[in-house]
């Protein structure tokens, strides 16, 4: 029986954001935007969804008089990401054994 892939993570942009954040301590919104090639609007929506799921923390503050958003992955986010990768590996194992 396949474990269902987490629908929050199983989306291109949200998965890209989580993969970036799992590798660093924290990253600014502009850095994530640059690395994912996403538009600010789309990225904001996806970041908000990850935040609502409790997978990331978002801190909004002022830096040199400009608004600045910083994101970091939470413990729940790390756990969800690890489970997602495990589930992917299961899918791939089954796929390979069928060939």
């Amino acid at each position: 029986m396949f474990k269902e892939l987490d629908p929050i993570l199983h989306s291109q942009l949200r998965l890209a954001v989580m993969s970036l954040l799992i590798s660093v301590k924290e990253a600014e919104f502009t850095f994530i935007k640059e690395k994912t090639n996403a538009t600010a609007g789309n990225l904001s929506v996806q970041v908000q969804k990850l935040k609502e799921a409790g997978y990331i923390e978002v801190v909004k503050e002022f830096k040199d008089n400009y608004p600045n958003t910083t994101c970091r992955i939470t413990q729940a986010g790390i756990k969800a990401f690890e489970e997602y990768v495990k589930a992917l590996q299961e899918y791939l194992k089954v796929g390979q054994s069928k060939q």
Binding site: L5, H10, S11, Q12, L13, L15, A16, T36, N37, A38, T39, N42, Y84, V85, L88, Y91, L92, G95
Partner: peptide, 14 residues
């Protein structure tokens, strides 16, 4: 290139 919200295959995800 803008990332879409289309479903991914396991290979694409990895």
């Amino acid at each position: 290139m803008e990332r879409t919200d289309e479903p991914l295959s396991p290979e694409e995800s990895l």
